[in-house]
Simulated assay, not measured.
Amino acid sequence: MMTWRHVTSGDFPLLARWLAAPHVARWWHHETSLEAVERDFGPSARREEPNEDLLAFLDGSPLGLLQRSFLHDDPEYLNELTPIIAVPSRAMTIDYLIGDAADVGRGIGTRLIRSALGRLWADHRDAECVIVAVHVDNIGSWRALEKAGLTRVAHGELDPDNPIDDRRHHVYRVDRPTD
Rank of each mutant, 00 (worst) to 15 (best):
W142C: 02
T32R: 02
P163T: 02
D59I: 00
V87T: 12
H170G: 07
A56G: 08
L150F: 02
L34Y: 07
D95T: 08
A20N: 10
W28G: 03
Y172F: 15
S33A: 10
A122V: 10
A154T: 11
V24R: 06
I131L: 07
G140Q: 06
A21G: 12
V37A: 07
D40G: 10
L117K: 14
R111Q: 15
L54Q: 11
D103V: 03
P62N: 08
L117I: 06
V87Y: 09
S61C: 10
E38S: 15
D11W: 03
T93S: 15
R26E: 13
L112S: 03
W27D: 00
N79I: 02
T178G: 04
A16G: 01
Y77K: 05
N162G: 01
D40V: 04
G149P: 01
L55C: 05
R39P: 06
V134R: 03
G64F: 04
I94W: 09
H23D: 12
G118R: 13
G42A: 05
T151G: 05
L15M: 09
R125E: 14
V24I: 14
R106Y: 04
V24K: 10
D73V: 07
V87I: 10
E52M: 09
G107F: 11
L14C: 04
L66H: 08
R106V: 13
S61R: 14
L150A: 11
G64T: 06
D73N: 15
D165P: 02
L63Y: 03
P62S: 08
V37W: 04
R125A: 15
D103Q: 14
S61N: 12
R90I: 04
E52G: 00
H135D: 05
R90W: 11
G140D: 01
D59S: 05
P50T: 13
W4E: 10
R168G: 06
D137Y: 04
A56L: 09
R46A: 14
W142Q: 01
D137S: 13
G105R: 11
P13V: 09
R167I: 05
E49A: 12
H135R: 12
R143Y: 01
H135M: 07
S141M: 11
D166P: 07
W18D: 08
R143F: 07
